[in-house]
Amino acid sequence: MPTDRMQRNIERHHDRLRGAMKEQLPQIIGGEDIITAPDGKRIRVPVRYLDEPRFIPARERQESGFGHGASPGNPSNEHREPEIEIELTIEELSELLFEDLKLPRLKPKASSDEMSDTQIEGITTRGPRGRLHLKRSVIEHLKHGGDWRDEDLRYRDVRTKPTEVTKAVVVFVRDASASMDEVKRYRVRAASFWALKWLRRQYQHCHAVFILHDTAAEEVDENTFFKASVMGGTMLSSGVGLASHLLSNRFPSGQYNRYVLHFSDGENWSNDDNRFVQAVKELHNEVEMYAFCQVSPMHFGRPTGAGSLIENLGDEFSRITVGHIWRNEEVSNWLQETFGGEA
């Protein structure tokens, strides 16, 4: 068995390893091999090799005819830290990610549905033999002595306890216009992947709905949502309008916690800007959150185009958030900014 000192060393090493992995999380979670991995598959995550600290004597400088920066087998003396690969499941990586982001637990409202949960509570004088409580039966028998009577038998009492069910629906809306190239579509896929995993950790039942739009919107399946390429121009109001319609008709607010995550590069037809802003204002009262994510570079760190219009609404409407993903490494920052506040 490991000694206390060995156990402390093991725990310290595990803590250092988790710390090294967390340092690289922004780069790790944006990787395509993780986003596209099938359920249950273990993925390999490269992390910095961690050795126990120790003193290493400095080597004497060797003069050679190759100069100070190169040698026949070593073209450069530049130091590179070694790496090791650790195997994790997607769920284990999710746990590490959400722990590092310190995302708050949401406060979901329960639906009118109830789920029955049977629990053993108390003792009763009737029941099947399989639930016979021997100790309590013997105590009852000893109270009077003599022969066993049916009245002495005691059974574990099973009662049905109703529990509230929490349900959510998240509507993913994506601008599918000609300006949304493959790189931008991948950013949408990575952000949607982790957002859905986070919400499904918070709710017992979480439905996902997918909407694509250019100048008109339509509901599609998940595969089409992520892979559909060039369509027409951009009218952001069409996507928001269809999201509102689907929520009203299929997911009543009294039964579902409702989220709309809208991804775009920020470009929009100018004659649609007012309709878009008005549609978002109206949607605000129907959902727990409307999040607009811009997946293209911003101007001096600020949203451009439609993103700037919605950012101004964020100060007035608490359920509207605006974020951006310019690079794959910014997915974790977007999760923190979007879900880091109170729902």
Score class of each variant (00 low, 15 high):
E329Q: 09
A343I: 13
I56G: 05
D4V: 02
E95L: 08
E286Y: 04
G40K: 03
Q202S: 06
S76Q: 07
N249P: 05
P297M: 06
N328E: 09
E151I: 07
E337A: 06
N223A: 13
V171G: 04
N274H: 14
L313V: 02
S64N: 05
A279C: 11
D315I: 05
L283V: 04
I43V: 13
I43N: 07
I320P: 02
V45Y: 01
W269H: 10
R156V: 10
C293T: 15
G122E: 00
V322M: 06
H14Q: 13
S237E: 07
G340P: 12
R105Y: 11
L153A: 09
V165K: 08
R44C: 12
R42Y: 13
R48F: 08
G254M: 05
E23C: 09
L96A: 12
R319N: 14
I310C: 01
V188G: 01
T234R: 00
S94D: 03
L261K: 03
E222F: 05
S229W: 08
R275G: 12
V295R: 00
G145L: 09
I310M: 01
F339I: 06
W194R: 00
T160F: 05
R48H: 11
G314Q: 11
E282S: 10
D272H: 06
C293A: 13
D315H: 11
W334H: 04
R16E: 13
D157R: 14
I84H: 07
W194D: 03
I28F: 06
H284K: 08
F292V: 00
A343L: 15
S308E: 12
H144F: 08
N285P: 03
A20Q: 09
E92T: 06
D265G: 02
I56S: 09
K135V: 06
T118W: 15
W148E: 06
R129I: 12
G40V: 03
V322A: 05
F292W: 07
S264P: 00
E121M: 07
G122W: 02
A70I: 06
I43M: 12
S179R: 00
D4W: 02
L196C: 07
A168W: 01
G31M: 09
V188H: 00
S192M: 04
V183N: 14
R200Q: 10
P82R: 10
E288M: 11
V47I: 15
K107A: 12
Y186P: 00
F226L: 06
Q278A: 15
R12S: 13
D214F: 01
R302V: 05
G323C: 10
R18P: 07
D51M: 11
D100L: 10
D113N: 11
R250P: 03
A195K: 03
A228P: 01
V260C: 04
R61H: 12
F251W: 10
L93Y: 02
S64G: 05
G67W: 05
Q278R: 15
D265H: 02
Y256C: 02
Q336Y: 12
R250Q: 14
L106A: 07
D15W: 04
R54N: 14
T125N: 15
T234H: 00
A217N: 05
R80P: 08
V209Y: 01
H262T: 03
G146L: 04
S270Q: 13
G73A: 14
I34S: 05
A176C: 09
H133L: 09
G340R: 00
P252T: 09
M115E: 15
T224Y: 08
G307T: 01
V171Q: 03
N257A: 08
Q255F: 11
N9Y: 07
I34G: 02
L25K: 03
K281F: 01
H324S: 15
